[in-house]
Design a binder for these strands. Structure first.
Lengths: 144, 144
DNA sequence: GTGTACTAGGACAAATTTGTCCGATTTATG
DNA sequence: CATAAATCGGACAAATTTGTCCTAGTACAC
């Protein structure tokens, strides 16, 4: 569904959000440990999220990553996906046709659009805050 | 959503089905032209579909690919996807966790399962016959 | 200022997916 | 039997994605 990069990105952002809610700024190393991802690769992804203003980074000792509280409410899953995978989740034909649309549809156009719209709606409706909810109480996980 | 191989596979199978319904056996070359796919790569994919009994191939002069009429009704999109991409559409966590399940879910587990079930249902409900319907009357397309 | 703990970013490497090439084999036809 | 038209299958090549390594730069603490 998503690229590995995107999966790591969502997990990383979710972890950062959960810690930011407790007032903790977290390092790359800690993030990679907590979401069980390759450190250097995760660094690249966090750079992207940082450039896209999804996470804030600070260099130097006691530096790390954090997300402003107001942003934790505001940022939706869809923004993270878009920052990493671009719009390919939203655009693009299920059968790979370049010019598939309602006028010249592929044989599964309508059925795909329906499912993709559901996905899109879910991504746009789910905030980082919601992602963190279960983590705090231990009913959801980011590893393994 | 699907791999390129799978996209080509669905398009190829759909084209073969549409021609088989008219009693025509079609060659690899013709298939690749009609679905606008790389010839040699399409050959590999058709081999897979052949091994999985989704299409029937005959070698030699006047050989080619075809699908039995009764199979056109019976074969569902899901079988084609499974033959090429395996079960990764059905199994597997949206965030890439190996052991994500209802007991130890990732933060988006439920929302993903809902969407994936829709996709699964669609794939299992759509037959090759249905895929060919619009092609005959020119309301759906397999190229571009 | 120096050391230490960080992120930034470029270059590189490995793995996977996508795609090509070519010889072997099969089958119909003359 | 010879030829032509086709699939089969293995080896290879290119492109993309995933992942590593190393250097530079930044900020805090002493």
């Amino acid at each position: 569904m998503f690229s590995k990069a995107c999966e790591y990105g969502i997990r990383a952002a979710t972890y950062i959000a959960s810690q930011s809610l407790e007032g903790r700024r977290v390092s790359l190393k800690e993030i990679a440990e907590e979401i069980d991802s390759p450190v250097a690769f995760t660094a690249k992804i966090l750079q992207q999220l940082s450039r896209n203003k999804i996470v804030a980074s600070s260099k130097g000792a006691y530096g790390g990553f954090e997300i402003e509280k107001s942003n934790i409410e505001r940022i939706k899953l869809g923004q993270i996906v878009h920052a990493i995978d671009g719009d390919k989740v939203y655009v693009g034909c299920g059968l790979g046709l370049k010019k598939c649309n309602a006028n010249k549809p592929c044989p599964v156009h309508d059925r795909f659009v329906a499912i993709r719209d559901d996905l899109k709606n879910m991504l746009e409706a789910t905030s980082l805050r919601e992602m963190t909810m279960g983590l705090e109480v231990g009913t959801t996980y980011l590893k393994r």
